[in-house]
Amino acid sequence: MAGCRGFYFGIWADHDRFDGILLGNSRPRSDDGIDLFAAAVFSVGRGEIWTTGSEHGIFARCDDINLSVLSRGMVLSQPIPRKECLSLQLFLIAIVLPMMFLAAFVEEQKDKTEVVREIKPWNAAFNGKRLSLYLSLGLTAIAMWAAYYFGSLVDLAFVYPASYFSALWPANAVLLAALLLNPPRYWSVFLLAGAVAHVVAQRQFWHSRIGA
């Protein structure tokens, strides 16, 4: 361990008093020989504040930096700090808006030159002779539940370390689309399905994190 060299960082403090940033090219050890970084990696992964018990160091739970993945002193990944993530989101919104308007404009122009088509409802495939209304509603709700659940699992990979928010949460877009495509009298079914999927995905994610 002592021979491992690389870039290390952490908060150097005297108990709870913040003293400064620890940066270095060698792996520091406490007086009693505990490897500070290894211990920090161990405990920060569980979201706790770790201390050596001496006055040498404390690794606060640094939500916006990566202390959870350190291997042989190399920083392998680095969660996006919150403010930088906001910049990234603004960048994406700034691009998607003009593109969306352009695509809508082009589609409008195409529609003008083509035969006017009939807009079919969301669950047109289930309607009418083949399936009853309740069955079609149930199938749609199940499909939305599955989309929301699996979407949430993907989304949770983008969660801000310091909050519950994900940088991108497409599962909500799925639910909103389902609401927009169905009459408000059926919304309770979709909201309930979304809530159940939300709770299941969240519990699974946080349990897996805590148990890691």
Binding site: I93, A167, P170, A173
Partner: peptide, 10 residues
């Protein structure tokens, strides 16, 4: 932003 972005994209 976390909510608006997927609404606009998806």
């Amino acid at each position: 932003l976390s909510n608006l972005l997927p609404f606009l994209i998806l």
